[in-house]
């Protein structure tokens, strides 16, 4: 598991770094859902093994009891994995150079080439926690890091976020709970406005993104925005959705729910 998470971690790095230089349109954000699914799959692959070992060691008497115990053990095992990741990796790590990547992927020809490519373009990187929200967290961190040095951009972004609430309501998002996430997002942006041009402004962004409560709230709201964007342009995005699902179903099942199991 650790090894798997490690790999996912590395995959995120280019995304997070690229954001500063590349476009920030919503379609880019979609790339993450594939990655997010991978994280879910990995967890699921682990489960049968866990379940099986529980049954053989416990051997409870009644059938229904077996089911109950297994469920609980599976959930406990999942929680343990999540806690391990939480304890070992901050949501957004400190700035480091790319040197360690070279050693990490020394045995992998394909990834070594990728690392080399990255080194040509970037001087530094930050690691993100592989919890299924890494892309969105990486995105919002890089974007706010940019905004804090560009007051006009921050003002423009805040205006967009403020206006987005009405749009979400118009699409039928539940008012009461949506507002909770929206208001927190606006609070964070207003707070950052006060930090502009101050020496500690970057630390402010770092501490916001590493504050579990705030950070996850920002990520939830980004997911709501993406969901709204997909639904508004359903005619187009329907062709990108696998399985016999509508855009609305995809948003409900994947975008808004998948990764908050373990956040």
């Amino acid at each position: 598991m650790n090894q798997d998470s490690g790999i996912e971690d590395e995959q995120v790095v280019p995304d997070a770094i690229n954001l500063v230089n590349e476009s920030r349109g919503l379609p880019d954000l979609l790339l993450d859902t594939g990655m997010a699914n991978k994280a879910t799959e990995m967890t699921e692959i682990d489960l049968p093994r866990v379940g099986a070992s529980c049954v053989s060691s416990n051997l409870p008497n009644s059938v229904s009891q077996t089911t109950v115990n297994q469920d609980e053990l599976i959930l406990a095992q999942e929680q343990k994995i999540v806690d391990e990741i939480k304890a070992s990796t901050p949501m957004i790590g400190p700035k480091t150079d790319l040197q360690p990547l070279q050693q990490e992927f020394a045995n992998d020809i394909v990834y070594s080439a990728k690392v080399e490519q990255l080194q040509k373009q970037y001087s530094h990187m930050r690691r993100t926690r592989p919890d299924g929200n890494c892309f969105l967290r990486g995105f919002i961190f890089s974007y706010l890091e940019h905004c804090i040095q560009h007051p006009d951009e921050l003002a423009r972004f805040k205006k967009k976020i403020v206006e987005s609430k009405a749009e979400l309501f118009a699409l039928g998002f539940p008012k009461f709970t949506t507002e909770d996430f929206h208001d927190t997002f606006v609070e964070v942006l207003s707070d950052l406005e006060k930090s502009i041009n101050k020496s500690n402004s970057l630390q402010r962004v770092e501490s916001v993104i590493n504050d579990a409560g705030l950070s996850d709230y920002l990520v939830v709201y980004l997911r709501l925005l993406i969901s709204a964007h997909l639904q508004k342009n359903a005619d187009f995005f329907t062709f990108f959705i696998e399985g016999e699902r509508t855009v609305v179903e995809f948003c409900k099942q994947v975008l808004l729910q998948d990764e908050f199991v373990h956040s």
């Binding site: 699921e44 599976i74 949506t178 996430f181 939830v220 409900k252 729910q257 373990h262």
Partner: peptide, 21 residues
């Protein structure tokens, strides 16, 4: 949440998400 599916719910069934209450 969809990640935990001990009972094998139908995929269309409404799951937990942060906008529920």
């Amino acid at each position: 949440s969809p990640g935990e599916d001990p009972m094998g719910y139908e995929s269309s069934a409404e799951r937990w998400s942060p906008v529920q209450s």
